[in-house]
């Protein structure tokens, strides 16, 4: 890490997508940056191509109708963004839940995109994948974005221990946290990870006043698991932040997991029951989306 103001020019992070104007990634209009790679493997992930990094196996090369994928001299897969027609054939073909359409960007490169949208936005939101995997990168990025007078929010699955390294929180305006499961067995099944660190983060972020928003996905027919998670979360967050009760939607979910979790979306009425429950437990800002 450079000490003051200068960028470590070597530092780059894999960016899957930048949405210049987003109205669903935090308050106001925001530029949303989606980083590639996630330590969790949630069964209901609806953009599973962001989970792993490209292995340069080449399985996708032949699938590309626009001939936008090839091997570079160093043996790494090369994606020609200008030729790409965004048909998604490559990510459907990928055996690793990865995507070849990733740019390894420097802080400065990302900033030049953010400067363009700066006049129209309240701030930026970093998401993923899981953006906190690139903690050092975020610290540099947020430091610069705050100089533009724009707020910085993190969208996180809670896999990064914010208490152990609080530097990123010091330059970030808040965290939008997913709490998907609280029971160890269910968490292991759903996320392939234990819930301990996520729940520790929930308490820590509440304690330091950096919890911007909390989200729980409600699955169809999983009464016990849904109730357990909502009860736990609602009792803790109270009025501290909005609690989004998200209806499960099968769109984008890997086929094998759709069979497991449901091929239909969660009914609105069913989800409303959990919003009611959350509100009755003190989470007054609970609502269904």
């Amino acid at each position: 890490m450079p000490s003051t103001g200068e960028f470590s020019t070597m530092m780059r992070a894999p960016v899957n997508k930048i949405i210049p104007f987003s109205n669903v990634d935090g308050p106001g209009n925001r530029t949303a940056v989606f980083f590639q790679g996630c330590p969790f493997n949630c069964l209901f992930c609806h953009n599973p191509e962001t989970i792993r990094l490209c292995q340069s196996c080449g399985a996708c090369v032949e699938s590309c109708p626009a001939k936008a994928l090839s091997f570079a001299a160093d043996g790494q897969l090369f994606w020609d963004s200008a030729a790409c027609v965004q048909c998604d054939a490559c990510i459907k073909r990928c055996p690793y839940d990865a995507s070849p359409r990733v740019r390894w960007m420097s802080v400065e490169e990302l900033l030049s995109d953010i400067r363009r949208s700066a006049p129209y936005i309240a701030g930026i939101t970093t998401s993923g994948g899981e953006c906190t995997q690139y903690n050092e990168f975020l610290i540099e990025l947020f430091t610069e974005v705050q100089k533009l007078g724009k707020s910085c929010l993190i969208d996180s699955n809670g896999s990064f221990d914010f208490a152990r390294d609080p530097r990123v929180l010091a330059v970030c305006d808040g965290v939008m946290l997913d709490v998907k499961a609280v029971s160890p067995a269910w968490s292991k099944e759903l996320l392939s990870h234990p819930p301990r660190l996520v729940l520790k983060n929930l308490d820590y972020l509440l304690c330091v006043g950096k919890l911007q928003e909390l989200r729980t996905v409600i699955l169809p027919g999983r009464d016990r698991e849904n109730e357990e998670t909502v009860r736990y979360v609602a009792a803790r967050i109270g009025e501290a932040c909005p609690y989004k009760i998200i209806r499960y939607r099968p769109y984008g979910v890997r086929e094998r997991y759709q069979k497991l979790l449901g091929e239909l979306e969660t009914e609105a009425d069913y989800a409303e029951r959990y919003a009611d429950l959350a509100r009755s437990l003190g989470a007054t800002k609970a609502y269904v989306i």
Binding site: F21, N23, V24, P27, G28, N29, P119, Y120, I121, A122
Partner: peptide, 20 residues
């Protein structure tokens, strides 16, 4: 439709554009 829930986001876009 989702923009109906976030008029502040649209206002920010309009403000930035008029300013520019």
């Amino acid at each position: 439709e989702t923009w109906l829930k976030t008029p502040d986001a649209i206002l920010a876009i309009i403000q930035g554009a008029l300013e520019n």
